[in-house]
């Protein structure tokens, strides 16, 4: 093995790219869970976003339109979940699983004709001045726009959740839906909006995999990223900036193992490939040792207004 082949600068730069899909999906899910709903369908919404974003991107030749379509598709799919759990009061765990299974089927159905095609390339933003800073420039400021969009979404989520009235209502609904209902807040409506936001973010995350990260359509290509996003929300104790930290840490591990594979490390490829999942389990264990601090009080509970 030649560790010298691994360029630390490139490693750090590709870390942001590797982390972006999970970051997007996780920040969306954090908002959903803050409103008291557990949506286990992240993987299904991501893969649907991936295929729709790719298909629209290829057909229009514009990745930007692809991303918009992916967000719309993710949100649309999440509404299916929303109607089931909020209006028909189905079990959230089971419905989320169903959404994932459904999304996987839907995506491979849509994606068949697009296998083997190449995604329209997305221009990198070479931010003037900042991009020319030695070392930091290539790491931080020479990415595609979506990397920055994801950071803006994290910042906006943090601001809305902690600094605005809308965020307060959303957290209130998630902490105690009966109390929020008694105060006159529309629990179902707030949750539906949160679920739609989560779906749109998961869709964006999926599209980032198919349009930028890979960039082509392969069946089942999100490979558990949606589930890892769910784990990162727990890791982050439902806090936006910690979601960012978790996603980047995870992105770092992914990139490192890919680089080790490419450098021909003495460790078998399969062991390297399973390492992100094992690390996720270990992280979950460490987090649970500390107790479930910050889990919204009404998370996963069914809300039924009797009057």
């Amino acid at each position: 093995m030649d560790l010298g082949q691994i360029n630390p600068l490139l490693l750090l730069a590709s870390l942001m790219v590797a982390a972006t899909p999970i970051l997007l999906a996780a920040i969306g899910e954090a908002v959903v869970e803050k409103s008291g709903v557990l949506n286990l369908g992240v993987e299904g919404m991501m893969i649907t976003g991936a295929v729709v974003g790719f298909a629209i991107g290829v057909n229009t030749g514009s990745p930007a339109i692809g991303f918009v379509a992916a967000a719309a598709a993710g949100a649309a799919l999440s509404m299916l979940f929303g109607v089931l759990v909020l209006y028909l009061m189905s079990n959230q765990v089971a419905t989320g699983l169903g959404l994932t299974l459904f999304g996987l089927g839907l995506s491979s159905l849509i994606g068949k004709p697009y296998e083997g095609l190449k995604a329209p390339s997305m221009a990198k933003w070479d931010i003037p001045v900042l991009g020319d800073i030695p070392i930091l420039g290539p790491i931080l400021f020479r990415h595609d726009p979506m990397v920055y969009v994801s950071l803006i979404i994290v910042a906006a989520t943090w601001y809305v959740l902690t600094r605005t009235r809308a965020g307060l209502i959303l957290r209130g609904v998630g902490e105690n839906h009966d109390a929020a209902h008694a105060l006159g807040y529309k629990v179902v409506r707030v949750r539906l909006m949160a679920i739609a936001f989560g779906g749109a973010c998961a869709g964006l995350g999926g599209a980032y995999v198919s349009l930028v990260r890979v960039p082509q359509w392969v069946e089942g290509m999100t490979a558990g990223a949606g589930w890892i996003a769910l784990a990162i929300v727990v890791f982050a104790s439902w806090r936006p900036w910690r979601v960012l930290l978790g996603a980047y840490l995870f992105g770092g591990i992914t990139v490192l193992q890919l680089n080790l594979q490419a450098a021909g490390a003495a460790i078998p490829v399969e062991i390297l490939a399973m390492s992100p999942y094992i690390v996720t389990i270990l992280v979950l264990v460490v987090i649970s040792l500390r107790g479930n601090h910050g889990a919204p009080g009404s998370l996963g509970r069914i809300f039924h207004a009797t009057h």
């Binding site: 089931l84 189905s90 419905t95 169903g98 459904f102 999304g103 089927g105 491979s108 159905l109 068949k112």
Partner: peptide
């Protein structure tokens, strides 16, 4: 397409929960 059956099974789950 094979995927249509997978979707079919997913739909079944949804209708059931609904």
């Amino acid at each position: 397409p094979a995927a249509a059956i997978q979707m079919f099974q997913g739909m079944l789950m949804f209708f059931l929960l609904a």
